[in-house]
């Protein structure tokens, strides 16, 4: 089949939604909103399917006795307990918040905190492996911004804050604006390929 139904769906739905951005026709706006509402609901269903899949994968690992089954058991127990507590009492109940505050936040916060060490190691390695002009510009910019971001033991280095402001508002902003425009152009190109059917990422 050269032109399957799914391609027609993607192109038709996409064009209606896109037209809603540029044409202020009430019927079109209503249709666009309905399509987006269904899409967002569908995204939520996809999230649940993902969680079901997660459960299945780890359940299979647990029951098949593979290496790492203990970890799967831990995951399933914590998932089921959380489902039970949050599902029964509601996500804003004291018990649910207790789980959130004492499991979710410490673990995620600690994972991010690890980066404070890992990134220094990365910076050191960069200097160790390669000392090109660009990597030196990169690392010097990073050091200047870091020094100017914190309080620096209360010492005021003349011109440091002004230098930070200038980097933020002139060269770094220029680079970021170039990147944003590049991203924008890339999105338009990739999106249009979907809308003319030349890219079909939904093909199974």
């Amino acid at each position: 089949m050269k032109f399957p139904f799914s391609v027609a769906v993607a192109i038709g739905i996409g064009l209606i939604t896109l037209a809603g951005y540029f044409l202020n026709i009430p019927v079109l706006q209503t249709l666009r909103m309905a399509l987006i509402e269904w899409a967002t609901t569908l995204a939520a269903v996809a999230l649940l399917v993902g969680i079901a899949n997660l459960f299945t994968i780890h359940w299979n690992k647990l029951t098949s006795g593979k290496v790492g089954g203990l970890y799967s058991a831990i995951l399933i127990v914590s998932l089921v307990l959380t489902l039970g507590v949050v599902g029964w009492f509601g996500p804003t109940h004291t018990y649910s918040k207790w789980i959130f505050n004492n499991v979710q936040l410490p673990v995620e916060g600690s994972l991010l905190a690890l980066l404070a060490v890992i990134l220094v190691v990365a910076g050191v390695r960069l200097l160790r492996l390669r000392s090109s002009m660009l990597s030196i510009i990169f690392i010097i910019t990073a050091m200047v911004i870091l020094l100017a971001t914190g309080p620096l033991f209360g010492i005021s280095v003349p011109g440091l804050t002004e230098l930070r402001s200038w980097i933020a508002q002139v060269p770094a902003m220029a680079g970021a604006r170039g990147l944003l425009l590049g991203i924008g152009l890339g999105i338009v190109a990739a999106g249009l390929r979907v809308l003319i059917g030349s890219d079909r990422p939904y093909r199974g």
Binding site: S6, A10, I13, T17, Y21, A43, A190, L195
Partner: peptide, 12 residues
């Protein structure tokens, strides 16, 4: 395909 169509249009 529905999701991809909407996502592409919204992104553009």
């Amino acid at each position: 395909a529905f999701l991809v169509g909407v996502a592409a249009a919204v992104a553009i």
